[in-house]
Design a protein around this nucleic acid. Structure first.
Length: 919
RNA sequence: GCCGGGGUGAUGGAACUGGUAGACGUGCCGGACUCAAAAUCCGGUGCCGCAAGGCGUGGGGGUUCGAGUCCCCCCCCCGGCACCA
């Protein structure tokens, strides 16, 4: 072994060795159980960033660990190659997206290889290749024929200057990013996947995913949003609406129906068609609602506005006339595009009612209110008045309380006071959204919310104006994109036959690759050679669809394609899919928690229903990694704009205790401002190029730092000093191994007498093995696994016995360290093993096993507490009985002092851990 | 706004099942080596206190022999998003 650690040469050597051995080729016939480890494939943006390094290192650590545990591991890699950045780059550099993408792939593949990932490169795929997307098109035509895919119109962001559809991210402050024009909503026909048909299965399937983080499952549950409620029909007031009909709403709170004081509809609601024509104010309000982007984030942050329409509908129980409002917070795409408003029991309705001075009717009582209600009932009954007699149309409308008693027969002053007092009680500042007991609700008075839910639903059904309904928040998945760099939608529009799917023998519909888009409309729609075609059914002149698919479609099934990446006879080879699926471990960023993971689960079910794959779920275990963040630095320019400075150009000054007190730019020595610690991003110029770290310290240091600085699911803070610390540790491992090997390698300890020191070292070694095995396998906390190895190495360095037995223990420790670190720093381990076991190949080694004999201890240390506070400790025989422990503890000097002559009230003994004396 | 996740030394983090708070790394301080520096190695390092001891896991309360961990209230940060009726 060389005396010093030289990562560049040992990394090249190790990688060459793995290549020659085809070490990571995943064969189908291995006789071992399979382990399919998948990291989310990258978008080929140009070069690797730290997030990629983190993602793929985690995957590689798990893959190499499982390989050492005896599994036939498959770790593939590929490219999510379609997408918008390629079109942007094409416009900026006048290069076709295809050429730009392929050259990025070539560069990034080299970078990934330099990280030393144990990938089966023979399975590499790129989604922009026709041999990949042809199967996507094939599945599309199957699903289209089945009715799982259908066409309808949907709103898009339209840039009226560039005459193009914009993605949400291309709309900045309501304007197109290139043209600066105010964005409009425009309805265009699109193809949709009927994902809602699978909503229930996608929901219940989550319960089977024990290997998924609870957080992700919760997010998906909320996204699917199953609710049980009631559809309610409010019939039109024919006089104001001008025709008969019903306004349908959906509510999860039918128990509050008696408190409904108005209904609100979306700007696009058909009930408004006629009235908007005659009312210019209403018309302009509706127009205003229709402006702006379609992004829900934008709509969500809008000021809540509304306007009365002059229309009325009838309350289905009371037949009271309720005003119809148009409101910008009601969305046509959700439910029925109309809601019944119960200001007393809904936050949003309450805020809206306050804004526009709409009545608030309380119908669900809090416990305090309920007792007042009961008192009032009693008082009224004493005077022969039924409380239900007068509440229906007036009582609950507390704004109009003063009028109510005029409708009644003569009553006493006491009753008037009681009613007024009750009315005051209901003048609360905030809505009561909790369930409770119904009041002011006529025949439903006294029912609990859940009882009223049933009673009101049943009555509505009897009256034929509503029924119980289960509703999902999930909407169908629109996949049409008016873009060039995507998978062409395999449909032919025939004037005679309609939408005709492209027949199998004509697939793939190949995307021409030599096109440079210009940002104004879809390039394919301007290429007759692409869209002119004959109808497959009648042979007549027809037009090919020029929209492409959402790129989420490609990433929804790539995991299955890896099982048989070159299969030319189908989307997947069924046998290969059966062998490898499901993915045993999936690793990727938390930002994909909802959309990508839900779409992939959906696709798995679609492919299952086509008989292509088995099982119901694609990903057995999921690990969502945190972001890579770094400090930010900036200077303010004269215009008040922030100019971001890369951390590598900054020197941070600290005080005598190491606290940061300021920072300067290296180039000019002048101060810069310290910003927050944020996700590495171009916009904040706080990115660190992984290539620079690999070049300076080697891939192993980069991998080690990434795994050591934080557990994988937490955010990881970049630190140059931390990287140097990781490098230092590798040098220490190298030196310790080198120094040992220099004195001659020996067989690892097998048995025989040992000194107390050597015994203690072996104890620590085998405790470490057990811990590291658990950390890597069950806990997936690589940071603690590394820390345990650091402690072990520190102990070994202090251990200086030179007897043959001691040297055999040292050999045992060093071999175990090389093996335990192998998943994380495989190049280094490869070289260490070559030194420790000349002629032997680490690839064939299993993960070390903890030796039960070494773990046996005669004596253990236990802690002594007095009143829960640490006062000392004792070394006792492992099997000491309670009486002995109590006696020893009470005799302890510190305990005597604390007791100060008093006696212990109680003694708590936790076996093997502590004794707590309660004084 | 809603949902989810967090808040522990100067700092990244550890403490896995309610049982020694601060492992390991970084930084800082001191020392060795060196003409000197870097590198390397050794020692120290939660706060207050001379010490005994006390205090300490965002803040307040509670449960418990014992709370970073469990419960209630509040504050702050991060992520996601959906006014979902």
């Amino acid at each position: 072994m060389q005396p010093n650690y030289h990562p560049e040469s040992i990394e090249q050597q190790a990688q060459r060795h793995w290549d020659e051995q085809q070490a990571f080729h995943a064969g189908e016939a291995s006789g071992k159980p399979k382990y399919y480890c998948l990291s989310m494939f990258p978008y080929p943006s140009g070069k690797l960033h730290m997030g990629h390094v983190r993602n793929y290192t985690i995957g590689d650590v798990l893959s190499r660990y499982q390989r050492m545990k005896g599994y036939n591991v498959m770790q593939p890699m590929g490219w999510d190659a379609f997408g918008l950045p390629a079109e942007n780059a094409a416009m900026a550099n006048n290069v076709p997206p295809a050429a730009w993408t392929y050259s990025n792939i070539d560069y990034m593949r080299k970078q990934l290889k330099s990280l030393g990932l144990g990938i089966d490169w023979s399975r590499e795929i790129a989604t922009c290749r026709p041999d990949y997307y042809r199967w996507e098109q094939w599945l599309f035509t199957r699903l289209f024929k089945k009715g799982v895919i259908y066409k309808k119109t949907a709103s898009v962001n339209w840039d009226p200057v560039d005459h193009t559809v914009l993605a949400n991210e291309q709309v900045i402050d309501g304007r197109g990013w290139r043209s600066g024009a105010l964005v409009e909503k425009r309805d265009i026909p699109m193809y949709f996947f009927r994902i809602t048909q699978y909503a229930e299965e996608l929901l219940t399937g989550l319960d089977t995913l024990e290997g998924w983080p609870e957080q992700v499952k919760t997010m998906q549950r909320n996204w699917i949003g199953k609710s049980s409620g009631c559809e309610i029909h409010f019939s039109y007031d024919t006089e104001s609406v001008g025709k008969s009909g019903v306004l349908k709403v959906y509510t999860t709170r039918p128990d509050t129906l008696m408190g409904a004081t108005y209904v609100a509809v979306a700007a696009e609601h058909p009930i408004l068609e006629k009235v908007a024509q005659n009312d210019v104010h209403l018309k302009s309000f509706i127009e205003r609602c229709k402006r702006g982007s379609v992004a829900e984030a934008d709509i969500a942050t809008m000021e809540k506005e509304g306007m009365p329409t002059g229309l009325f509908v009838m309350h289905p129980i009371t037949s009271e006339k309720l005003p119809v409002w148009v409101a910008n917070y009601v969305l046509m795409g959700y439910g029925e595009g109309a809601v019944m408003a119960v200001p007393a029991h809904d936050e949003r309705d309450y805020a809206f009612a306050m804004n526009y001075d709409l009545p608030v009717k309380h119908v669900i009582a809090s416990p305090e209110l309920l007792s007042k209600w009961e008192k009032l009932t009693y008082q009224l009954e004493a005077e022969g008045i039924e409380i239900n007699q007068f509440e229906l149309n007036k009582f609950g409308m507390i704004h109009y309380m003063s009028g109510i008693l005029t409708d009644l027969p003569e009553v006493s002053l006491a009753v008037i006071e009681a009613v007024n007092e009750f009315a005051d009680q209901m003048q609360i500042e905030s809505p009561n959204v909790a369930h409770g007991t119904l009041v002011c609700s006529g025949k439903y008075n006294g029912l609990e919310s859940h009882e009223a839910f049933e009673a009101i639903s049943a009555d509505l059904q009897t009256k034929n104006c509503g029924q119980k309904r289960t509703q999902y928040r999930l909407r169908d998945w629109g996949i049409s994109r008016q873009r060039y760099w995507g998978c062409p939608i395999p449909i032919i529009h025939c004037p005679a036959c309609g939408d005709v799917p492209v027949p199998d023998e004509q697939l793939p519909v190949v995307l021409p690759e030599n096109v440079v888009p210009d940002g104004a409309g879809s390039p394919l729609a301007k290429m007759p050679e692409f869209y002119e075609c004959a109808c497959p059914q009648c042979g007549g002149k027809a037009r090919r669809e020029t929209d492409t698919m959402d790129t989420f479609v490609e990433s929804s099934w790539y995991y299955a394609r890896y099982a048989s990446p070159n299969c030319a006879s189908g989307m997947v080879d069924k046998q290969a899919a059966q062998q490898w699926l499901p993915v045993d471990q999936y690793i990727g960023g938390i930002e994909h928690a909802i959309l990508h993971l839900l779409y992939a689960r959906f696709f798995h079910k679609l492919m299952r229903d086509e008989g292509l794959v088995q099982g119901d779920e694609p990903f057995k275990n999921l690990l969502t990694q945190g972001m890579v963040v770094a400090p930010t630095f900036y200077r303010e320019t004269e215009g008040g704009k922030k100019q971001w400075i890369n951390p590598s150009e900054v020197e941070v000054k600290t005080d005598e205790r190491g606290r940061p007190v300021g920072a300067t730019l290296r180039a000019d020595g002048q101060p810069v401002n310290i910003g927050g610690t944020e996700k590495m991003a171009k916009s904040k110029n706080n990115g660190v190029d992984p290539q620079a770290i690999i070049n300076e310290f080697g891939a192993d240091t980069a991998r080690l730092f990434m795994m050591f600085a934080a557990p994988p699911d937490q955010q990881l803070e970049w630190s140059d000093a931390g990287v140097e610390g990781a490098f230092r540790f590798l040098k220490r491992v190298w030196k310790a191994t080198h120094d040992h090997v220099e004195q001659g390698v020996v067989p690892a300890y097998r048995g025989g007498d040992l000194s107390a020191m050597a015994k203690a070292l072996r104890l620590q070694l085998h405790q470490t093995i057990a811990k590291v095995d658990d950390d890597m396998g069950r806990r997936k906390t690589f940071n603690t696994a590394i820390a345990a190895n650091m402690e072990l190495l520190n102990a070994l360095v202090k251990f200086d016995e030179q007897t043959p037995a001691a040297r055999s223990v040292a050999q045992e420790v060093l071999e175990a360290v090389a093996l335990m670190l192998n998943p994380i720093v495989p190049h280094l381990s490869h070289a260490l093993w070559a030194g420790l076991r000349p002629g032997d190949d680490l690839l064939a080694q299993a993960f070390p096993k903890a030796d039960a004999n070494a773990l046996m201890q005669d004596e253990i240390e236990i802690v002594i507490q007095v009143n829960g506070k640490l006062r000392g400790n004792l070394t006792v025989a492992k099997n000491a009985d309670k009486a002995t422990l109590e006696r020893l503890a009470l005799a302890h000097e510190a305990v005597q002092k604390q007791l100060a002559g008093g006696t212990a009230k109680k003694i708590v003994i936790v076996p093997g851990r502590l004794i707590n004396i309660v004084a």
